[in-house]
C-alpha cells in the first residue's frame, strides 16, 4: 500500500458504511475450497457481528480480482479491501469495532490467537487440500478446475498446486506427515478450548473477530465433506468449540436467513 492509498483510505474511512457493499468470493457450491471457504465465512461472520449489510457476489475468478490475490474481498464505495484483517481495519476506521471494551493486553492476546489459527488451521487445510493425494485427486482438482475449460483446468490446477506447495515448504509444513498435521490441529484446538474455558465467547463482553475466525474455520471443517474426515473428527472432540460454532451460526446466520 503506497502512501497515497493510505491517505485516501483514511479520508474515505470517515464516510459511513455504504449500502451497496459487495462481498466477492468464489462460487460456494461448486468451486470454493476448504481454506478459502473458511476465510470467506469468517469475514461474513465478522460483518454480521458488526451488523453491516453486504451483498454476496460469487465470481469464478474472485481470487484473481482480489488486490492481495486472496479471497474474500469487499468493494465499499471507492475502496476494495481484501482479507479479514484488512476488512477489520477498514471497519474499525469507520468507528465500528467489536473490541472497544478490550485493553491493549487483551487485544494482543486476541491477535496472538488469530495468528495461531492462521498458522495452524489454515496451513492444515491447505495441506489436506493440496498435498494429500487422495483429497487432491478426488476433490481439489474437480472443484478448483470446475470454472475452466479443458485443458486449462489441468494447467491451472498444476500451477496452483505448485504455488501452494512452495508456500507450505517455506513455512515448514510440506515435510510434515499427515499424522503431524493432525497432531498440530489437535494442539491448536486444545489450546483454543482451554482459552474459551466454557464461556459464551472468547471475551466476556461479546463476540470479536477472533470468534468470527474460529467460527469460519471450524464450521467449514465440520461441514465440508472430504474423503478424509479425520480433521472434522478431531474438531468433534472439543464440545465447547462446537457449541461456540453452533451458537454463532444460530445467532448470526440462521436469524438472517429467516428475515
Amino acid at each position: 500500500m503506497t502512501l497515497v492509498d493510505k491517505i485516501s483510505l483514511e479520508l474515505g474511512a470517515q464516510e459511513p458504511w455504504p449500502k451497496d457493499v459487495k462481498f466477492f468470493q468464489p462460487h460456494e457450491v461448486e468451486q470454493v475450497l476448504l481454506p478459502d471457504n473458511a476465510n470467506c465465512l469468517a469475514t461474513q461472520a465478522f460483518l454480521k457481528m458488526c451488523q453491516l449489510p453486504y451483498i454476496v457476489e460469487p465470481r469464478p475468478n474472485a481470487e484473481a480480482m482480489s488486490p492481495t490475490l486472496k479471497v474474500p474481498f469487499i468493494k465499499a464505495g471507492r475502496f476494495v479491501i481484501a482479507e479479514l484483517e484488512g476488512i477489520v481495519q477498514f471497519v474499525n476506521g469507520k468507528g465500528i469495532t467489536l473490541t472497544e471494551p478490550l485493553d491493549s493486553d487483551q487485544k494482543s492476546n486476541m491477535r496472538a490467537y488469530m495468528s495461531l489459527i492462521h498458522s495452524v488451521l489454515e496451513m492444515a487445510e491447505l495441506y489436506i487440500c493440496w498435498v494429500d493425494d487422495e483429497t487432491y485427486n478426488e476433490v481439489t482438482t474437480a472443484r478448483n478446475g470446475s470454472v475452466y475449460p479443458w485443458p486449462l483446468n489441468h494447467i491451472q490446477n498444476r500451477n496452483k498446486r505448485s504455488q501452494v506447495i512452495k508456500k507450505l515448504k517455506t513455512l515448514g509444513w510440506y515435510n510434515k506427515k499427515l499424522e503431524d498435521v493432525y497432531s498440530e490441529v489437535e494442539t491448536c484446538c486444545e489450546s483454543l478450548q482451554t482459552r474459551l474455558d466454557g464461556k459464551r465467547f472468547f471475551f466476556e463482553h461479546g463476540p470479536t473477530e477472533l470468534d468470527a475466525l474460529v467460527f469460519g474455520h471450524l464450521f467449514t471443517i465440520l461441514t465440508t465433506p472430504l474423503p478424509r474426515s479425520d480433521l472434522a473428527n478431531i474438531v468433534r472432540n472439543y464440545p465447547s468449540l462446537i457449541d461456540l460454532v453452533k451458537r454463532i451460526e444460530k445467532e448470526y446466520f440462521k436469524k438472517a436467513a429467516q428475515q
Binding site: 496472538a112 498458522s119 489450546s191 483454543l192 482459552r195
Partner: peptide, 11 residues
C-alpha cells in the same frame, strides 16, 4: 498459560 504461550509463540 500454556495455551496463551502457544498462541504468542505463533504470533
Amino acid at each position: 498459560e500454556r495455551s496463551e504461550c502457544l498462541a504468542m509463540t505463533n504470533l
